[in-house]
Design a protein around this nucleic acid. Structure first.
Length: 396
DNA sequence: TCTGGGGTCCTAGGACCC
DNA sequence: TCTGGGGTCCTAGGACCC
């Protein structure tokens, strides 16, 4: 989906179309504020001048999405608010409306599933779709079906998306970025050398800042540069798994299937404080936040019908270093008090002298609540001791 | 100008078992 | 006195993604 979070807000405030808008921050209820001030008028008639600006923004936070006009100023997602404010002070800031985003997410995904049922979820704003068995899925290399999906999503939601069609997920993902926004790009196997090789290594889904830096140190800047290397040389530098994967990726090889169903592995809640907190000095405040996080994970687990048996905490210190501790317990649980107790024990095992900026609580090793409880009708245990092994080589 | 929140997967060492 | 070869599970950290 194109600039998904921002586009969702533009549906509510169409008067902001064409203006630089960023989504993020989140602590302020801007829409409520506007609603109070302009209670007598529909949201779409609130003048753009009434919206809060990035230059007036205070607080910690990053940009989740920027509209295309905002991107012209170099503002982009994951950028700190303060930096963005310097680049584009006149941009309008709005908080993320997660409920609204989830609603549109469900809608666009169900539109796709009606057309092509094999869909893999990749978060709120992204999916992989298997066109193989869809009637007409091969016409014009998939372009016809891609157009139908784009049109259907727009009719249902008013939102645009960009689609990449390719022989596998790796290339499709790269292709989806070729024609943003509202574009379609079809890449065939034979196009890898001309369309993929010139791209920077970072465009490979799975190569992040660390791998990019290392590749640069080795004087590899484009995907073609990687493709030109010997597999064994890559393995020597990056290890067996990563080296081989990198070589395949650079040659456009990827045989991962589109996975339509998966079970969650963990659920967590974390929060960055408005100011850094100290374990001793801010004990009460921290304690309240901690309990709240435990209750929220427990609530998430219960609402979704899961229980877990590994409970852990995460801290981020003021210098941005991260520490985690976890503990696996005997019984599956989704009980807030149990989670709080075990997480509290984890907290005792971690250094707490430094100021903290973030605290998180995580529950892993998940199982479906019904299955975890249906499990052990304590079966009788039988132990069979092996015969003593005869001493074949010793004295008779 | 300091940098969110929710995830997944991988690695590596150690405990423990047969 | 010295010391095998499998395997699983747990824990901590880190890279990466949306």
């Amino acid at each position: 989906m194109d600039a998904f979070f921002a586009s969702v807000e533009l549906l509510r405030y169409p008067q902001l179309k064409g203006l630089p808008v960023v989504i993020g921050g989140g602590r302020r209820k801007v829409d409520e504020m506007l609603r109070d001030r302009f209670a007598d008028r529909p949201l779409s008639e609130i003048p753009p001048e009434a919206f809060p600006l990035l230059k007036d923004y205070v607080g910690r936070g990053v940009i989740t999405t920027a509209t295309y006009p905002a991107r012209q100023f170099g503002v982009g997602s994951a950028m700190g608010m303060m930096k963005a404010a310097r680049l584009c002070p006149q941009a309008i800031v709005l908080p993320v409306d997660f409920d609204e985003v989830r609603r549109y997410s469900r809608t666009f995904k169900s539109v796709i599933r009606e057309i092509a049922p094999l869909v893999e979820d990749r978060g709120v704003d992204e999916v992989y779709i298997d066109f193989t068995e869809v009637p007409g899925g091969q016409r014009e290399g998939g372009r016809v079906l891609a157009r139908l999906i784009q049109k259907s999503i727009f009719e249902a939601t008013g939102l645009t998306c960009s689609i990449g069609v390719a022989p596998n997920k790796l290339i499709a993902k790269m292709a989806s970025e070729f024609n943003k926004p509202n574009g379609i790009s079809v890449i065939f196997e034979d196009d890898v050398q001309t369309r993929i090789w010139p791209l920077p290594v970072r465009k490979i889904n799975g190569i992040g800042p660390k791998a990019e830096a290392k590749l640069h140190r080795l004087h590899l800047r484009t995907i073609g540069d990687i493709a030109a290397q010997d597999v064994d040389w890559l393995i020597g530098n990056f290890g067996r798994a990563t080296g081989a994967w990198m070589h395949d990726a650079a040659w456009g090889r990827d045989d991962r299937p589109v996975v339509t169903e998966s079970e969650p592995v963990s659920m967590s809640r974390e929060t960055t404080f408005e100011r850094d907190l100290h374990a001793v000095r801010d004990r009460a405040e921290l304690g309240a936040i901690f309990t709240d996080l435990c209750e929220r994970v427990a609530d998430d687990l219960q609402r979704k019908g899961y229980v877990g048996k590994t409970i852990g905490i995460k801290l981020r210190y003021d210098d941005f270093r991260i520490a985690t501790r976890d503990q696996t317990i005997e019984q599956f649980t989704a009980d807030p008090r149990t989670i709080r107790k075990v997480a509290g024990q984890c907290l005792k095992r971690v250094p707490l002298k430094q100021p903290l900026r973030l605290l998180g609580v995580r529950v892993g090793k998940l199982a479906r609540e019904d299955e975890a409880n249906a499990a052990p009708a304590p079966a009788p245990t039988v132990a069979l001791a092996a015969e003593p092994i005869p001493d074949l080589f010793g004295q008779p």
